[in-house]
Design a protein around this nucleic acid. Structure first.
Length: 273
DNA sequence: AGCCCGTCCTGAGGGC
DNA sequence: TGCCCTCAGGACGGGC
């Protein structure tokens, strides 16, 4: 599923369409559009001025102070095509751009969302204001991590998945971060020591940077805008590894549910705090 | 506040 | 072959 590294990879590739104008939009999944499909008409004739990322959201700024905020949820991704012919079977939305380019939104499970709103209100309307700290930004310091976790209680993995604390981590990277830092995912954050925070801070940055460097994790359907697979799945050590031997100690990886998500971990290497 | 559940959705994979 | 069942889960709303 697309998380921070996958969205970041897409946003970097999508710079290729900045400056293009939207000529037409077709969609067979009107429900994805917020507040409604009719709002998509506001984008037609507008020029893409910038494409940026906040957490797992993609933010397209257009001429005329209009913004499109896209979220991939489980199975969404953009593809850049040289014709209107769908590059994949599950293209739900297609944007005809100037220069004969087509931006296609693929989304098997139809969970993805496309929100159109005024630039002045998009952060509030799309709840971007409620998002936590960006873990790959300079201001994500050790002190900032401690601050974000201050007065919080609960299971470590649940907090890593909470977008209002740290923004952009999903199920894959949460498992990898816990494994990297040797924390049992059900560790109580209120029990973490100063040294634990040092290790956690390092692991968050390492795993997300590795994901970006590898152009994302392809498990299931995620691909980049050219349809190419990422490489991060080749170096996963925890996510979906239950039943397999631990890459460190050789013990069999365990499985449990945390926050409704399947969680894989090594009961020997990852200590419960 | 923390935690759980249901909802949205559809393909993959298992069982028979 | 084919049908039914379960599973996968990001965000959100609701309940305890």
């Amino acid at each position: 599923m697309p998380e921070l590294p996958e969205v970041e990879t897409q946003v970097r590739d999508l710079q290729a369409v900045v400056g293009k104008k939207i000529l037409a939009i077709t969609s067979d999944t009107h429900k994805a559009w917020k507040p409604n499909f009719a709002a998509s008409r506001q984008l037609v004739g507008k020029k893409i001025l910038s494409i940026t990322r906040r957490a797992k959201y993609l933010i397209f700024k257009f001429s005329g102070r209009v913004v499109l905020v896209a979220h991939f949820r489980m199975t969404g991704h953009f593809l850049i095509a040289k014709s209107a012919t769908p590059l994949e079977r599950f293209i739900r939305h297609s944007f005809a751009l100037s220069s004969g380019i087509f931006l296609q939104f693929s989304d098997i499970r139809k969970f993805g969302t496309l929100t159109v709103c005024a630039e002045s209100s998009h952060e509030k309307f799309c709840k971007l204001v409620d998002l936590g700290i960006e873990p790959l930004e300079k201001n994500f310091t050790l002190a900032a991590l401690k601050q974000a976790f201050q007065n919080k209680k609960g299971m470590l993995k649940a907090l890593l998945l909470n977008q209002s604390i740290i923004a952009g981590i999903g199920n894959i990277y949460a498992d990898e971060i816990c494994f990297n830092a040797k924390f049992h995912p059900a560790s109580r954050v209120e029990n973490l020591t100063a040294q634990d925070f040092v290790n956690l801070h390092k692991a968050i940055q390492q795993e997300l940077k590795k994901g970006v460097k590898n152009r994302g994790t392809t498990i299931g359907e995620y691909v980049d805008t050219l349809g190419k697979h990422g490489k991060n799945q080749l170096s996963l050590r925890a996510y979906k590894q239950h039943g397999k031997p631990c890459s460190v100690c050789g013990g069999i990886m365990q499985k449990m549910k945390i926050s409704q998500r399947t969680t894989s971990f090594c009961a020997h290497c990852q200590r419960k705090k």
